[in-house]
Amino acid sequence: MKLYRPATILVGILFVLIGGLTRLATPEHVFDEQNIMISKGTIGEPLQFGKEASITVVRVKLVKGVLEPTASSSEKPIETDGIFVAVEWQTSRGPEKPDTPIATLTSDSDAVFSPIAMIYSGIEFGAAGFTVSGSIVFEVDPTELQGLTLDVRPQQFWNVLNRKVSVDLGIPSEESAQKLIDNAAEEYVLPRSETRVSS
């Protein structure tokens, strides 16, 4: 008796079953995305990004106008109808080159804010063994400041296990948000990013 054909069919059925089983086993309700782990933390905490890199939020400032460091003295700061949130950061990395970081701010009510399109506003990594510090600025609706969270996710081309950073910017209530808005500085000059040897 030829066993070839029934065996082929059996293997096919087995594959289908295994496919269904893995689908059942995926922890869909545990993670938003199956391949992204989240490093959660607060201001001042170094948080793991990707495999070997780390991102620390140093301080957060609310400001009404932003200027490039290259701006001439006669140039007016760029203003907003909302408010600018400047997040000053520090990064370091291991030997492996980290993925390009993509930063957004998310509020408690799920509004998403992107960084402003200025050259010196962004998050970057230096060479291995060096710490870089700089600033990234977001334009934000002032009514959405409560519970603002900085998300930095790695840009990935392949669907591999990765780790993103989620930092609570420490604006717990509307009163604290209002206080921050009242004390917001008139202008903020984006710092040039600085590199130094990691200690």
Binding site: I78, T80, D81, G82, A111, I116, A117, E139, D141, T143
Partner: peptide
């Protein structure tokens, strides 16, 4: 917008 190409328009803010 605001003299910059690709300037992000924020949800909830008045027209730009």
């Amino acid at each position: 917008c605001r003299g910059k190409p690709g300037w992000s328009i924020v949800y909830g803010l008045p027209p730009q």
